[in-house]
Design a protein around this nucleic acid. Structure first.
Length: 161
DNA sequence: GCCAACGTTGGC
DNA sequence: GCCAACGTTGGC
């Protein structure tokens, strides 16, 4: 099982929205590197749900992938801001996955806190200028983030490093 | 294939 | 709201 981080602006779609929805298609990703990560996701993978453009920005909860990558329908919707007229329906350019909520963290883990964790030093998230909205995280990073957020999720989610 | 212009992301 | 960083576009 792999671990990931998904960014979303809480003003648009925050972790509480995912809880309310119960399940959501993670669509609208229009960056090739992020798309490639989406395509690597498998059912059961866990994701840190990161609030960007927030006060403070940080990890708000945990989500689980419940459906692996399939074509993002918005790319073929002319009314959508995510419409991509150059995408070929026979070979869709953009993908999405479905995710469901697992648990909200008792405390949001701000970016500043992540930066201070030894496990996160190597993550693209803490590098300035990184705009990736989907990125892999290591099990150690995942556990460290949960611990910083006061989560008591059973450790059986993840094998010790 | 280069590269300048432009748009977007996202922290602050 | 500012602006640095970066990806994409399109002229040549």
């Amino acid at each position: 099982m792999a671990c990931w981080l998904l960014k979303s602006e809480p003003d648009v779609f925050g972790y509480p929205d995912l809880v309310r929805a119960g399940r959501e298609a993670w669509n609208g990703v229009r960056n090739y590197q992020a798309r490639n990560f989406l395509r690597e996701m498998r059912g059961g993978d866990l994701c840190l749900f990161y609030h960007s453009n927030a006060r403070p920005s940080g990890v708000a909860g945990v989500a689980r992938v419940v459906r692996a990558a399939y074509p993002d329908d918005l790319q073929f919707d002319p009314a959508s801001p995510y419409h991509d007229p150059r995408s070929d329906p026979a070979a869709p350019r953009w993908s999405m996955v479905d995710v469901e909520p697992v648990a909200e963290l008792p405390r949001v883990v701000p970016l500043e806190t992540l930066r201070a964790l030894p496990e996160w030093q190597s993550s693209p998230l803490v590098c300035r200028g990184t705009r990736l909205s989907v990125l892999p995280v290591t099990p150690a990073q995942f556990r460290a983030a949960l611990a910083a957020g006061g989560s008591d999720l059973p450790g059986l989610f993840l094998n010790p490093a």
